[in-house]
Amino acid sequence: MTEKNISITKFQLFFFMIQSQIGIGLLSLPNVVQKTAKGDGWISTFIAGVAVQIMLVIYWQLLKRFPNLIYTEITQKILGRFIGKLINIFIYMNFILIGGLITILFIKVINLWLMPLTPNWIISILILIACIYLTISDLRMIARFFVLATSLILLLWFTSLLSWFTPKEIQYILPIGSSGFKNILLGTNNSLLAMLGFEGLLFLFPFIIENKKGVLKTISMANIFIMIFYTYFMILTLISFSPDQLAQMREPIINLLRGLSYKMVDRVDLIFLSIWIVPMTTSCVAYLFLASKSMNVEKKNYQKVVLMNGFIIFLITLIPYDDAIITLFNKYVSYLNYAVVFIIPILLLILSFLFKKHEMSESA
């Protein structure tokens, strides 16, 4: 059973969901999605948001049957100890590998745009020290920090309004649907990977101290915010750059701001990126927290587990990598991710109904 002395409100849950989903993936999303969906990339992003909403409803149905258990406890409750623990190993590997991938991408952005001469291992240490320091704190402190950090996401939206004064070409997204259904679905896959983080609900649900009847509404509102936020930036970048330009830009969102210059403020993109370090860090914190929680350790050993997982992520970032290796790493991690985030929860819900399993039933 989970500890009851650590709790969050539905208000904090809303911002936790947002912060765990928005981060490093947003910066390169238009480039990745445009490769397949072209001008219909914004449709792919919208469909991905709908898919996330469907999964949130499935999560809700599963968690209602086990309101005091986290994901890795539910697996053992339904599948038995042996199979449950085996599945939990894959769940842990998924979160630790995603944490490593996010940190690698984080380092790459910092190294490319802000500190090109700084060794990657130094940037990695600085990032992970901040992440470990926050993750070691209790869940309530993490949630409070995520609430404050959301203001920086709103700052990005406000800054993006300035880019509307630059030339725009609506023809880049017309005619709607011209890319074809298959390519739009391929773009949806890339959008889904950028929106991951909502699976944190599977670990946060037992710690919500208020009436859980309003949780589905809370997480749905968070998802709608994410869907609108991502779709907005997809449309903005698609009409700001030609397809050829987008194909050559690693982080189109940053390039969107690069052209802005004022008498008192120059290189808005670098100012933004310096601030955006915080939302990128929250994504790392979220996955470090999920990896540590998935190990089902006692509270007194939690800090040691966080330190160990932080060190493992650091070792992952030391592996020599280039764009090809990162692409391959991302490909295989995404396979594991789909299993942990989509397939396993769906199977658990089906089996819980077939075997009439719920929290009050006897362990298998």
Rank of each mutant, 00 (worst) to 15 (best):
F95C: 15
F95A: 13
F95G: 09
F95N: 11
F95Q: 08
I96T: 04
L97Y: 08
I98L: 12
G99S: 11
G99F: 09
G99V: 11
G99C: 11
G100T: 11
L101D: 07
L101C: 10
L101N: 14
L101Q: 08
I102W: 10
I102R: 08
I102A: 10
T103I: 13
I104S: 10
I104K: 14
I104F: 06
I104E: 07
F106I: 04
F106T: 01
F106Q: 00
I107M: 01
I107H: 01
I107G: 01
I107P: 00
K108E: 14
V109L: 08
I110A: 02
I110F: 09
N111V: 10
L112A: 03
L112V: 03
L112T: 12
L114M: 06
L114P: 02
L114D: 06
L114Y: 11
M115W: 12
P116I: 04
P116H: 03
L117D: 09
L117M: 10
T118I: 12
T118N: 12
T118L: 13
T118F: 12
P119F: 05
P119C: 03
N120R: 09
N120W: 05
W121D: 11
I122Q: 07
I123P: 07
S124T: 10
L126R: 02
L126D: 01
I127L: 07
I127Y: 06
L128G: 02
I129R: 04
I132T: 10
I132K: 05
L134V: 14
L134R: 09
T135H: 06
T135F: 07
I136H: 05
S137W: 03
S137G: 05
S137Y: 06
S137D: 08
D138A: 15
L139G: 03
L139F: 09
L139P: 06
L139Q: 08
L139T: 04
R140E: 14
R140L: 13
M141I: 14
I142C: 07
I142D: 07
R144Q: 12
R144V: 11
R144H: 09
F145E: 12
F145I: 12
F146M: 15
F146L: 12
A149L: 10
A149C: 13
A149G: 09
S151D: 06
S151I: 11
L152S: 11
I153R: 05
L154E: 02
L154W: 09
L155A: 07
L155S: 05
L155T: 07
L156W: 03
L156P: 03
W157H: 12
W157T: 15
F158R: 11
T159Y: 00
S160K: 04
L161P: 01
L161C: 11
L161G: 02
L161Q: 06
L162T: 01
S163V: 09
S163H: 01
F165L: 03
F165D: 00
F165A: 02
F165E: 00
T166L: 09
T166S: 01
P167V: 02
K168H: 07
K168W: 00
E169R: 08
E169T: 14
E169C: 12
I170P: 03
Q171L: 10
Y172I: 09
I173N: 08
L174C: 13
L174K: 13
L174I: 12
P175T: 14
I176D: 08
I176A: 04
G177I: 05
G177W: 06
G177N: 03
G177T: 07
S178N: 14
S178K: 14
S179E: 04
S179G: 11
G180Y: 15
G180H: 14
G180W: 14
